[in-house]
Design a binder for these strands. Structure first.
Lengths: 93, 93
DNA sequence: GCAACCTGTAACGCATTAGGTTACGGTGCG
DNA sequence: CGCACCGTAACCTAATGCGTTACAGGTTGC
């Protein structure tokens, strides 16, 4: 339940650094601009579904695992505002 | 591989109909506009992280399960364009 | 030393999308 | 008929993924 990492950090640590890939090389391989990769690595963008598919092709991983990391990250932020949401319980009623 | 259902359909079938909830009632309970619920039920919007938390409160379910359904849905659409993406493999390299 | 080059990032614009507000057609009830 | 409620469409705003362009900091070759 502790601060989950940016998916970008994981991407950097698990994919780019082991292969000594630069932002430029990665961007070219994925078919996107350097900006897009830079933004992800620095946590200024999330992993979009399309990007997840690109990653799954380039690094031969599951697209789902990338999106799951993004999900955990987004959810963790959303949960922080849980108690500031005005919601009425309907289940237990 | 088969067309995953829209999260809105699931929401309607599993939450609204069993409790005979109207769009209006649900919207009030969740603290959003009727439009927002209507859009989700008809597949014109996805389940955002914030919405998932609202659903988890109102229906006492896991927020993650809603986002996972959304993930499966989004991913399925993204995968359809997999072969139209210009991506170079880096893993096997 | 300096000029050409490459790398990573910031600035700006565009398209998409979740969400609110408002307005409209439809239905039930006094 | 009149009124209230329902679901949805139309319009606007804010956020965000992406591309293009521009810029600062290094290398490398001369």
């Amino acid at each position: 339940m502790h601060n989950p990492p940016h998916p970008g950090e994981v991407l950097k640590a698990l994919c780019l650094e082991p292969l000594h890939l630069t932002v430029t090389e990665t961007a070219r391989a994925l078919g996107v601009s350097r900006k897009t990769i830079s933004a992800i690595l620095n946590g200024r963008s999330g992993i979009s579904p399309e990007m997840a598919v690109r990653l799954s092709i380039a690094f031969d991983t599951g697209a789902e695992s990338w999106l799951n990391q993004q999900l955990q990250f987004d959810l963790w932020h959303a949960e922080k505002h849980r108690n500031s949401l005005t919601v009425v319980k309907l289940s237990a009623a």
